[in-house]
Amino acid sequence: MSGTLQVSILWLLPLLLLPLAVYSGFRMLIGIARKEQGEGERDWSVPQLEFEGGESSPVHRWDVRFKLASFLILAFVIVSLQHPQTALAALMLALLGYRLAAIPWRRGFKRLLGMAGFLSMFLLMLPLTAVRHSGDLVLVFGSIDWLGFNLRGLDLAILIILRAATVALLMEPLLATAPLPVTLAGLARMGVPRRLTELLLISHRYLYVFLHEARRMQIGMEVRGFRKSTSLATLRSVGNYVGMLFVRSFERTERVHAAMLARGYQGYWPQPISFNVMPADYLKAAALIGLGLLLVICDQFMVG
């Protein structure tokens, strides 16, 4: 089916609201997921999985290096899919994998929300601005003929969203099933410079320190009546705030470095993490990459 389809102008509204609907849909997911958890104080005397603990799963027991490599390959495979149908299949598989890794849904949905704004832009713009080809079906609303709603553009936007959501859902099984230091040690084994992974660990730790610090400073300003507005005064206050954050962090930098030296730091972080390859590791990697291959083949032979 192609050509121009004349529809009532009333159709414009729901179609333009679509991005908004998708965005608020993501928000709702978070709301639902929030109810799902009701954890009490965790038992910190056992090794933690990064962020929140889940029960052990095949993904948890997978050697980090194989996991990283397989997921990375899979991620690039997924973003190369050219048809919404295969992308949808990939998303379903990703959901299945997510379930298998026994991670709270809330975390994955939060990731989706992180992209929601950016992706809504595509959903809004692509149908309206995609170049009209001869085979496209375009909806034209009443007499406004300069504004055509290109269904191929909508297809494209949906494809992008499906690909993005799939990769985002893969991130949790990839990252949350091992402590961050182990994941990073795996990366280092795979050839990422060790210095980089060490720095990531330090940054990750101090991120929380500065988040708390920034939050306290923000409260300090708020209780003295600070309210953001579009004004020079706000700009100045925020400039001071950011400047103070930097000054404090520079000072802390020096102290942290001194503390590391004082405890015997000599330029590298001692981290003897040993890896143990099992046949199952190879099997899981083969399965995942095989799945990726299958998706690509389906995608290639897909018509229309």
Binding site: L180, L201, H204, R205, R255, V256, A259, M260
Partner: peptide, 28 residues
């Protein structure tokens, strides 16, 4: 020589208590 800093956040640079406390002994 062990030096305890005023602000403990300067000194706790590990991502878990275990990692952090192990830093010194591992350097040894």
């Amino acid at each position: 020589i062990g030096l305890l800093f005023q602000d403990p956040d300067d000194q706790l640079f590990g991502n878990s208590l275990y990692e952090d406390v192990a830093f010194g002994p591992r350097n040894q």
